[in-house]
């Protein structure tokens, strides 16, 4: 019974995920084989890198900086562009019956629509709108997710065009997050993904007397962001009816159960790959099963959510 993986399988927007774990955008999802490797190791749904109209090399290094509670990154949306990126998705999806979320990033509605039309022609199962990258404000200004009006505009425009479910990936670095969540839902979003990285933050090398990250600042992830992610997911869960992918600081099975109790339907695992290695996904799956056994839950959906606010 304990190792029966079907107990943690989750139905999400009409697709079946073998496990509740989601590889979030930006992590490992650059190549088809990277997607395969992550799935083989226990991830249920794979998100591609955020794909843009043109290829992006991202920021120069260092793009990663560690501190006591987690890490900062300023990858800078590196990706091979929508055409090549979808080719990687298609290559993976051609051989594996594993749901793939295609993440897209743009700064105008027109570009979001062009990208969505291309995703329509791919084997991707869902499209996720990255409205919340914290690492390109030098180029593009504040993330779109800071404005509920812009979020609603983009979501509703994309919904008109998209042939597959639309997920809005939102930022915790805003005031009035729940209003933005309800605006996304009202505009037709099929699901939310919460949260993108926190901050951004900054670290300084006092010997070289420079910021550690090449871009000076970077989005914060890792164990330290979990409480913020839980709060964001719980507040959103209290206000919206659409499912939520809860991601942020989940490093073990108990963290994952916390995220489910906060109201998430699926749980993202990203930065934990660093400390936990590729085995982290299967470890979390097993830990969830252990928790379910401890409290007598037959399937993962039996795990209770907290009472809404």
């Amino acid at each position: 019974m304990k190792n029966d993986r079907s107990r943690i399988s989750v139905e999400f927007l009409g697709k079946r995920a073998a496990t509740p774990l989601v590889l979030p955008a930006g992590i490992m999802g650059m190549t088809w084989s990277g997607m395969k490797y992550t799935w083989e190791n226990g991830c249920g749904i794979i998100t591609s890198k955020s794909l843009t109209m043109e290829p992006r090399k991202g920021h120069a290094g260092p793009v990663i900086a560690e501190f006591e509670g987690g890490m900062l990154n300023c990858m800078g949306l590196c990706n091979p562009g929508i055409e090549e990126g979808l080719a990687e998705v298609n290559e993976f999806r051609k051989f594996y019956e594993v749901p793939v979320i295609v993440s897209i990033f743009a700064t105008t509605i027109d570009d979001f629509l062009t990208l969505t039309q291309k995703v329509n022609e791919s084997r991707g199962d869902f499209v996720e709108l990255n409205l919340s990258c914290p690492n390109v404000s030098d180029e593009y200004g504040l993330p779109l997710a800071a404005s509920k009006i812009k979020v609603a505009e983009i979501v509703s425009a994309v919904k008109m065009v998209s042939k597959i479910p639309v997920i809005a990936k939102l930022s915790p670095n805003v005031s009035g997050l729940t209003e933005i969540c309800t605006a996304a839902e009202a505009a037709g979003a099929d699901a939310l993904c919460l949260i993108n990285t926190l901050g951004p933050g900054m670290l300084i090398d006092i010997d070289l007397q420079r910021s550690v990250l090449s871009n000076r600042t970077g989005g914060m992830s890792g164990p330290c962001v979990k409480p913020v992610a839980l709060r964001a997911v719980f507040e959103a869960y209290s206000r919206v009816k659409i499912p939520i992918i809860g991601t942020g600081g989940v490093s073990n099975g108990r963290d994952a159960v916390e995220m489910l109790m906060a109201g998430a339907s699926l749980v993202g695992v990203g930065s934990a790959l660093y400390e936990g290695g590729i085995g982290i996904f299967e470890q979390i799956n097993q830990d969830i099963l252990t928790y379910m056994d401890q409290y007598g839950y037959g399937t993962i959906t039996d795990i209770p959510r907290l009472e809404k606010m």
């Binding site: 190549t31 990277g34 793009v63 990154n73």
Partner: peptide, 18 residues
Amino acid sequence: KCAIGICGNCTIDPLGIR
């Protein structure tokens, strides 16, 4: 880029190992 197994830039086909 990251060198810690997160960004996926150095995965190699067809294994996907980093």
